[in-house]
Design a binder for these strands. Structure first.
Lengths: 191, 191
DNA sequence: GTCTATAAATTGATAGAC
DNA sequence: GTCTATCAATTTATAGAC
């Protein structure tokens, strides 16, 4: 049996509201009413509006890092590994486009301390992709001139989905993730 | 001699503020003070905060469309044309990262009428890239399975720059645009 | 742990003097 | 075309009853 606490209901309401209107454009009244509570009830469960954002952001970053880390460990073949990493990272952004939008676009709205904490996850995501490319080059299977730049570009394909992707649109997440994986291989394979 | 009107000073102030804090996070007082004026002076030159955003957004869209349209006309060779289009589009986003951020991230903050007006520019940008790919496939030079999806992915490389690019950082706009152009050719060239 | 009521500050925008 | 002063509404967050 799944019990949804009032705290979790507020987080889900915050995800909806922040993704739709942005952090600054969202009022605590909006979050409270989406969760079926009075404005005052928010503060029983969360310290502030920003702490709500931090909860959403840190969990989103943790989840995205988890996905790409597991994909990186799924194979030692550089091509198959890259395909998995790009596919899973893009699919995560399609499947979690609302959280993804908050993760990517509300980074600046975090407090300095919270932003610093979240930044460590971002660096890990980038390093995971860079390491996979560098290893593929070392094995002689990939040909990548600019490893950090190419790693960033591969991640960009997934990240940019959150700008426009809506579930139930004309393209499925799987379709887009497969396309990105194909493009990634063409971008990096030694010929 | 270049005369900067009060109206233009306000637009420049709005670009700074919106890019830094987002539309909803920016106060009209902030814009006024960046332009060296009182809060009331804003409304002598612009109807509302949203009309300031619209002015920035429509000019930004117009400029980005202009850049990619000119690049599309610069060559009939599919590879050279694609290289120009991706290079120029990415460079535009690096050189205009503040306006680009407003264009890309504050689209939802426009009024319904203004958003519809801006949307026509977006469709033209996408169509220009799609047409270039389709023509390259027709000439037998490019190999692209999913033309709309690949066009979107190529544009994503440039668009996503505005999320993090800062002038004076470790990478120049030219460096990134060249990388994107190289990746674009690898993604689409027939082998 | 929820509510109603409200404090204290800030917001977009306007009035009217100069 | 700029200012000071201000309105009316809204904001985040708290107080205190139940």
């Amino acid at each position: 049996m799944t019990t949804i606490t009032a705290r979790e209901r507020l987080i889900n309401a915050a995800i909806e509201a922040f993704a739709e209107k942005g952090f600054a454009g969202t009022t605590t009244r909006d979050i409270a009413s989406r969760a079926g509570m009075s404005p005052a009830a928010v503060y029983v469960h969360h310290d502030s509006k920003e702490s709500l954002l931090f909860t959403v952001s840190i969990e989103g970053h943790r989840s995205a890092l988890d996905v790409i880390t597991k994909a990186a460990a799924s194979s030692t073949d550089p091509i198959e590994r890259l395909r998995s990493m790009v596919y899973d990272f893009s699919l995560w952004h399609a499947d979690n486009s609302r959280v993804g939008r908050i993760v990517q676009y509300e980074y600046h709205a975090l407090s300095d301390e919270h932003r610093a904490e979240v930044a460590t996850f971002r660096r890990s995501i980038e390093k995971t992709m860079q390491d996979a490319l560098a290893d593929g080059v070392g094995q002689g299977v990939l040909d990548v001139d600019d490893v950090p730049g190419t790693a960033f570009s591969l991640l960009s394909l997934g990240v940019d989905l959150v700008r426009w992707f809506e579930p139930g649109g004309s393209r499925s997440g799987d379709q887009l993730a497969s396309l990105h994986a194909d493009l990634a291989v063409r971008m990096t394979r030694r010929t």
